[in-house]
Simulated assay, not measured.
Amino acid sequence: MARRDREQTRRRLLDAAFVEFAAYGIGGARMERIARIAGCSAGLAYNYYGGKEELFDAVQSEVVDAAFVPFDAADLPGYAARLYDRQYEHPEFARLATWHRLERPGPVRRSGEIEAIRRAQADGLVSARFSAEQVLVLVLAIASMWSDAPADSPDHVVRRQAVQDAVRRLVEP
């Protein structure tokens, strides 16, 4: 029974942190607010994750990565369109990604995707004009460029097609 309660508390903390980080970023997020939303004490939240940085990393790996669309290096245009759809339907994912870029700059840490693009380049499925790392960053940027559009935007279908076409032209051999 205690194991189940522990897992439920951890899940509530992750869900509350996702909302908090999407709204305020790492710098603006407050562990006390996250704990209150999760229905536990701030001390318990620190006990589970140590601090905001660790909790942000947990949200990134357990909530965001689990909810994102499957990566397909052989179909980067389709992947970009599905990623655009996900961010259009759930703008909090796009906001969290923006906070990550702002507050955690550095190289893209998606080695599996980069390696898959390298293999697709070696197989002639993806252009080698850019490095695999550059291709991934460009695909992610193109898929996210309209993430701040209103959810009821009439241009959604047109923008989705533009994302898919732009990535197709970027990666075609």
Results as ranks from 00 to 15, higher is better:
residue 87 Q to T: 07
residue 146 W to C: 11
residue 60 Q to Y: 12
residue 35 A to Q: 08
residue 163 V to L: 09
residue 119 R to L: 15
residue 52 K to V: 04
residue 66 A to S: 14
residue 167 V to H: 09
residue 159 R to Q: 15
residue 157 V to N: 05
residue 131 S to R: 02
residue 6 R to Q: 14
residue 167 V to G: 10
residue 13 L to D: 03
residue 51 G to C: 11
residue 61 S to P: 00
residue 29 A to D: 07
residue 23 A to C: 04
residue 142 I to L: 13
residue 40 C to W: 00
residue 14 L to D: 05
residue 104 R to A: 06
residue 107 P to N: 05
residue 66 A to P: 05
residue 123 D to M: 02
residue 85 D to N: 05
residue 46 Y to E: 09
residue 25 G to N: 06
residue 90 H to S: 12
residue 151 A to R: 14
residue 41 S to F: 01
residue 20 E to V: 04
residue 113 E to L: 01
residue 145 M to H: 11
residue 20 E to H: 03
residue 124 G to I: 03
residue 156 H to I: 07
residue 122 A to R: 12
residue 16 A to M: 09
residue 44 L to T: 15
residue 52 K to S: 03
residue 17 A to F: 04
residue 110 R to K: 12
residue 142 I to K: 00
residue 96 L to K: 10
residue 159 R to Y: 08
residue 115 E to F: 09
residue 149 A to L: 13
residue 145 M to Y: 10
residue 90 H to P: 00
residue 125 L to C: 02
residue 11 R to V: 02
residue 39 G to R: 05
residue 83 L to D: 07
residue 93 F to M: 11
residue 156 H to S: 00
residue 77 P to E: 00
residue 134 Q to S: 11
residue 132 A to S: 07
residue 104 R to V: 08
residue 70 P to V: 04
residue 85 D to W: 00
residue 20 E to C: 04
residue 167 V to T: 09
residue 138 L to G: 12
residue 171 V to P: 12
residue 160 R to I: 06
residue 117 I to T: 03
residue 156 H to M: 02
residue 75 D to F: 06
residue 59 V to H: 05
residue 157 V to R: 15
residue 24 Y to P: 03
residue 34 I to F: 10
residue 36 R to P: 00
residue 120 A to S: 10
residue 58 A to F: 04
residue 111 S to E: 15
residue 60 Q to T: 12
residue 2 A to M: 09
residue 8 Q to S: 12
residue 85 D to F: 00
residue 10 R to K: 14
residue 61 S to Y: 03
residue 101 R to G: 14
residue 80 A to S: 08
residue 7 E to S: 09
residue 89 E to C: 02
residue 164 Q to T: 10
residue 34 I to P: 11
residue 157 V to C: 01
residue 11 R to I: 01
residue 38 A to D: 07
residue 100 H to C: 08
residue 137 V to N: 10
residue 149 A to H: 12
residue 115 E to H: 10
residue 111 S to M: 14
residue 138 L to M: 15
residue 47 N to C: 04
residue 76 L to A: 06
residue 95 R to C: 11
